[in-house]
Nucleic acid binder design. Structure first.
Length: 158
DNA sequence: GCCAACGTTGGC
DNA sequence: GCCAACGTTGGC
């Protein structure tokens, strides 16, 4: 069981879009960076936890929790000439790009914003908080995951 | 293999 | 809109 942070621009695909997708599930397509691809292809497994991060938002932050429901498989948008993410170099017989499928677990509303994340000492080592960090699929440690769960878990009812 | 030019990401 | 940081491309 591992933990990840996936970035998405909410004006392209938000956590709410995931929640309104069929089965609250989507294929995480369009990743076109080799390091992120390697994680998706080789390391992200069914049952892993995902922090759904909104980049280019105001404020940017973690907007929901998701889980992996299908491990790495070829990204079909790479083969589709009509897709924005089409890559003619990727052949179905030798795919270059991979996706996983994720399902929404719960929204974090309002999102846990980047400024708030920076104030939490236990999260100081997060890849996300590193200056110039651009990787769209990032590993998250168990300790970081647990801290964020604790901060965002819905209040228990009386 | 080097590295300059270029394109993209993403916070601010 | 600005721009720092980064990844990719392609000439040599």
């Amino acid at each position: 069981m591992a933990y990840w942070l996936f970035k998405s621009e909410p004006n392209v695909f938000s956590f709410q879009d995931l929640q309104s997708s069929p089965g609250q599930t989507t294929g995480w397509d369009g990743v076109r960076n080799y390091q992120a691809r390697n994680y998706l292809r080789d390391e992200v497994k069914v049952g892993d936890g995902v922090l759904f991060y909104h980049s280019n938002a105001d404020p940017p932050g973690i907007a929901g929790i998701a889980e992996v429901v299908e491990a790495g498989h070829p990204d079909p948008t790479a083969f589709d000439p009509k897709s924005d993410h089409h890559d003619p170099k990727s052949d179905p017989k030798a795919p270059i790009w991979y996706q996983v499928s994720i399902r929404a677990v719960r929204a974090i509303d309002p999102p846990l914003g980047l400024p708030a994340l920076r104030e939490i000492p236990e999260l100081a080592g997060m890849e996300l908080l590193r200056k110039g960090s651009r990787l769209s699929i990032q590993p998250v440690t168990r300790a970081e995951w647990d801290r964020i769960q604790k901060l965002t878990r819905p209040k228990s009812r009386r």
